[in-house]
């Protein structure tokens, strides 16, 4: 009785929030309703006694996937008037796609056959006394270990693909070579200068630190760093380097 009430509460909220995901005007609200739907699905898993799946659903979908959704959707600059304008233009396409899907579903269901002899299908039975987490592990890592590994490989390929697609060498922003930064000592970066009165550091070529220390820790090729940083402790003849002018620090490479 209690279980049934809990089931219907979770199921109702799940269906309603799934409906709101599609119909909410504000995309951020859509994602939040999606999260609510995930939660109720996890609740249904709990009712079914699958506590491991419930927790994994929350950790993976709510804790990671939906956060990234929300991240992206929050940064979208959505204009509702523009969206409504687009709705009229794309409505026929949407309807066409929907019709195709509906037809396919109808085809699939018209040929759907329910297995009559389900009891004779071989399946794994968990040993008595095993928690369902352990039972799931038994099945995954013994009977289906190759499929499981294959899933891992597919995910690895997807991950590498995402990195390849998005990683670009952009010379915007100056990046730091952390190891070199850690190796820096006060002797490399600090110099006591006698600054002439009224002229500031202009007489020293505009440098407030030993000249060679400026780009020691930056990654070559990042913003404002044109060449390989000079080795430490070796003073540089600044006439040999066109890029290091008197007022060039932080500016564009010339």
């Amino acid at each position: 009785m209690m279980t049934q009430i809990v089931f219907y509460v979770f199921a109702t909220v799940l269906v309603l929030s799934a409906g709101m995901v599609v119909s909410a005007r504000n995309p951020v609200h859509s994602v939040l309703f999606l999260i609510l739907a995930f939660f109720n699905a996890a609740g249904l898993f709990l009712v079914a006694g699958a506590e491991f799946l419930a927790m994994i659903l929350v950790i993976v979908y709510v804790g990671a996937v939906a956060v990234l959704f929300l991240f992206v959707v929050m940064m979208l600059d959505v204009r509702f008037a523009q969206m409504r304008e687009g709705l009229q233009r794309y409505a026929p396409f949407g309807a066409a796609v929907g019709l195709v899907l509906l037809a396919e579903l109808a085809l699939a269901f018209s040929h759907w056959q329910v297995a009559q002899d389900i009891a004779s299908v071989p399946h794994v039975v968990a040993a008595p006394g095993r928690t369902n987490t352990a039972a799931l592990g038994d099945v995954l890592y013994t009977h289906y270990v190759f499929l499981f590994e294959a899933c891992g490989l597919v995910l690895l390929v997807a991950m590498i693909g995402a990195i390849v697609l998005t990683l670009r060498e952009r010379p915007m922003g100056r990046r730091q070579n952390i190891d070199r930064q850690h190796e820096r000592t006060a002797a490399d970066t600090l110099a006591m200068m006698t600054v002439p009165l009224g002229q500031g550091v202009a007489a020293n070529g505009g440098f407030r630190r030993p000249e060679h220390s400026y780009y020691i820790a930056s990654v070559p090729g990042s913003y404002g760093v044109t060449e390989e940083p000079v080795p430490q402790g070796k003073p540089v003849d600044k006439t040999a380097q066109g890029g290091h002018g008197t007022d060039n620090h932080g500016g564009l490479p010339q």
């Binding site: 506590e51 491991f52 994994i56 950790i59 709510v62 804790g63 956060v67």
Partner: peptide, 15 residues
């Protein structure tokens, strides 16, 4: 039984 996962799930919701 899944206490650790529960903690992980709840702490990942904090975001």
């Amino acid at each position: 039984n899944v206490g650790v996962l529960y903690l992980l799930a709840i702490s990942s919701l904090g975001v």
